[in-house]
């Protein structure tokens, strides 16, 4: 394991050092918003980041295992193919945009546009677990994968407006109460018993373990699963004719 401080480095100096470090485990301290960390990485390196991770952390990456002791800014896990990001703080906007695989665990809140257009394919099944709440447009255009919002230690609304707008695949799990008027029209709601949580239980267990939160506290409040009512909501929008 290599440990160094990022305090003196600009974005690109830090990226170059990370690139040139051969060790599989790297710890970076005093991170102060440097951007583009692990962008496009195709490896299974383990990164421990202490401080604030800048925009597009892990974007286009496939495989790295990243733990952030601090907050993430915009675009965390943007178009990520695989790998894991565990964030002991909150994330900004557009986390997990177009995410195609891997997982993102956030202890606190997520900003606007969480998990827009996530998609799943075969064994690729992206997952986002947010400990507290998510802002507007969560799961917009969602095509596959799983978003879980737990509402722990939060006095904000669980989800912001326009949740699931244009969604056409995947599932959103909300724990506890949420403002129903913030949901898009095309969604079905199912309240799940503890026995019906098997699909997401591994993620809840992982969340409890990563953030040392008692699993039984998470499970004592019921979950609602949101899915699309009509599989192909846009199928009849258009008409072709011989012009």
């Amino acid at each position: 394991m290599t440990i160094f401080s990022a305090v003196d480095y600009e974005d690109h100096e830090l990226l170059q050092i990370l690139d040139e470090t051969p060790q599989e485990e790297i710890e970076v301290r005093d991170l102060n918003g440097q951007r583009y960390i692990a962008c496009g990485w195709k490896n299974s390196k383990k990164l421990i980041l202490r401080g604030t991770a800048g925009n597009n952390l892990g974007a286009f990456a496939e495989g790295p295992q990243i733990v952030v002791y601090g907050n993430g800014q915009e675009g965390v896990a943007n178009t990520m193919s695989d790998g894991q990001i565990v964030l002991h703080g909150r994330v900004g906007d557009i986390a997990g945009y177009g995410m195609r695989g891997g997982s993102l665990f956030v202890k606190g809140n997520a900003g606007y546009r969480l998990g827009i257009h996530m998609k799943a394919y075969q064994d690729k099944n992206p997952v986002i677990v947010v400990g507290s709440s998510a802002g507007a447009f969560a799961g917009e255009y969602m095509a596959g994968g799983t978003i879980i919002v737990l509402g722990l230690d939060s006095n904000r609304d669980l989800i912001g407006p326009y949740c699931g707008t244009g969604m056409y695949g995947g599932a959103i799990y909300l724990r506890g109460n949420f403002p129903e008027h913030n949901l898009a029209a095309n969604l079905s709601q199912e309240i799940l018993s503890i026995h019906e949580l098997s699909d997401i239980m591994p993620y809840l267990e992982a969340f409890a373990q990563y953030f040392e939160y008692p699993l039984e506290n998470i499970l004592e409040t019921p979950f609602t699963r949101l899915k699309v009512l009509v599989d192909r909501p846009f199928a009849h929008l258009y008409t072709g004719f011989v012009s």
Binding site: N78, H117, Y121
Partner: peptide, 20 residues
């Protein structure tokens, strides 16, 4: 579906803007 990495016979929607 293989090239796009989405399930077969599902719609492939590209949102109007890039949301990032």
């Amino acid at each position: 579906s293989r090239a796009r990495m989405i399930p077969a016979w599902s719609d492939a929607i590209s949102p109007a803007p890039h949301h990032d």
